[in-house]
Amino acid sequence: MTIESILFYVLSAGAVGSALFVVSRRNPVVAALWLIFNFFCLAGLYLSLHAQFIAVIQIIVYAGAIMVLFLFVIMLLNLGDERRLVEGVTPRKVVGGILSIAVLVELWYVFLGTPSIQHAALGNRATEIGTVEHIGAQLFTKFLLPFEVTSLLLTAAIVGAIVLAKRKLD
């Protein structure tokens, strides 16, 4: 077994295990902390796929910024007594379980029907496409307009956040 496949199995086990912890913990803050662990495992998986930029973004944006937002939402909601969230088997849960299994079967079916993407169009270039240098060179030349429009999108996000929150404050 190569070191890559060992890494893959370790990181995947970590990701699946921590994801199970996220959904099974009673304390929402503990669940959020397990989610951070999950994000780091995913970042490792991206690295092993030579997608360095995505790996870095995963840590900066998801483990950094999005998790802060998650924790703040947990604190804003003030769940307090977590036992209130526990309920028995309800019709909603049964339907949800059936639907989840249906999605799993569908995904399985699609994956089985998809030929391996490893040797498709990318070939050996796959290792260089995910690097930060390559993304930078493409983003600021070929995809310049989408990049500049992103700044407008972010400004709109800032204004939206202020307008929504400020009304409550004043």
Binding site: V61, A65, L154
Partner: peptide
Amino acid sequence: FYMVAMLFIVFDI
């Protein structure tokens, strides 16, 4: 607190 977090995300991006 939430507003600060929102602004943090935008500037983080």
